[in-house]
Nucleic acid binder design. Structure first.
Length: 341
DNA sequence: ACAATTTGACCCGT
DNA sequence: ACGGGTCAAATTGT
């Protein structure tokens, strides 16, 4: 069994196992007087996600290069033996050891799962697209790309050093449509910031992050918005090229009720009203900026907002969408051999 | 003061 | 040699 197949196998087992666990929890919730509707919905969402991830893996098992997006598992892509972990380098010159390690990393990164998604932003519609995969990203570079109008931004997982998580992503604004950003993800998250912190941030860092992000999002989403999301969310699988699959999540232009800005964190915020704390973070990490900003400022706003969104999270995770607000398109071509291939 | 971002330099692959 | 990806010091933000 090669590395990719092994990864798929482990991921599949993990997804199914977690599905069982969450189903058990849901059953207990049904018999618990203390259980809230929100918790039940959250569990339901997670179960749905597990099934969907499993399905994706099975459907794509013949195409080991591309992986289901951003499963927060230890994929073993970058082993812990790699010691390029932020230890201070002496000057610009890298030691021989570092050099050797870098070579190893480069080789491994070549085999890392890579996929691209497109996220659309527009003044009329507000933010369109998944922007919260529950992961937080830190920008570490920006480059002007030959032939591209806009620079490419490079992000790595905030927890690279803390949790040895080597997931990265690149954000490239489309030349053709400046409101479209292509996000290329590379590598899977080893960290536990998404799946687990969504319910209960465990580490101090996560709690701190949660507190930070909580300040941004208090009470700013309406149920109507989320209902609209549910009604209109679609997943397109038009390939951007032969090697990568683009997931273009189109949200309806119905966010006019939103005001105020803010990240949508990947955790449960006690200040979030209603039952959508998790769903919101997963399905729509928007700021409602489209309505409150002048078109005049669109250019800079898009970059700023998108940067904010991407630096906190972006979502390749189809399965992390709330059951409330995400439904698979009946025409979703799971059988398309190019999907994730 | 600490954390995040910016940006020029460095390194590797082609 | 060139382009893309990453590093890390400097800068900016909270």
């Amino acid at each position: 069994m090669d590395c990719a197949s092994n990864w798929e196998y482990k991921t599949l087992i993990n997804e199914l196992t977690q599905g069982i666990e969450h189903t058990k929890q849901l059953r207990e919730h049904f018999h618990s007087a203390a259980s809230t509707h929100e918790n039940q919905e959250l569990l339901l969402h997670k179960i749905f996600s597990h099934y969907e991830q499993s399905l994706l893996i099975l459907k794509c098992s013949g195409s080991p290069v591309q992986s289901p997006p951003a499963l927060p598992l230890s994929s073993g892509v970058i082993e812990s033996s790699v010691s390029v972990d932020g230890s201070p380098r002496s000057g610009k010159k890298r030691s021989f050891q570092d050099h050797q390690e870098f070579i190893n990393i480069s080789k491994k990164r070549k085999s890392q799962p890579t996929w691209t998604e497109q996220v659309k932003v527009s003044a009329e519609t507000g933010f369109e697209g998944p922007t919260d995969d529950g992961y937080s990203w830190r920008k570490y570079g920006q480059k002007d790309i030959l032939g591209a109008k806009y620079p490419r931004s490079y992000y790595r997982c905030t927890y690279r050093h803390m949790q040895n998580c080597w997931a990265t992503k690149q954000v490239q604004r489309s030349d053709d449509d400046p409101t479209v950003f292509e996000i290329t993800y590379r590598g899977s998250h080893n960290c536990h910031q998404a799946t687990y912190s969504a319910l209960q941030p465990t580490s101090p860092a996560e709690k701190q992050e949660s507190m930070k992000q909580a300040n941004y999002q208090a009470g700013q989403y309406s149920n109507q918005v989320l209902i609209n999301l549910k009604a209109n969310l679609r997943v397109n699988t038009d390939d951007v090229d032969t090697n990568e699959t683009a997931c273009h999540f189109s949200f309806p232009p119905t966010f006019s009720g939103l005001t105020g800005g803010g990240y949508s964190p990947s955790f449960v915020s006690p200040t979030t009203p209603g039952s959508n704390y998790f769903s919101v973070s997963s399905s729509c990490q928007m700021n409602g900026f489209g309505m409150v900003h002048n078109l005049h400022n669109l250019e800079s706003d898009l970059s700023d907002i998108f940067s904010a969104n991407t630096s906190t999270a972006s979502s390749p995770i189809v399965g992390k969408f709330s059951l409330d607000h995400f439904e698979l398109d009946p025409n979703f071509p799971f059988n398309n051999p190019n999907f994730f291939s």
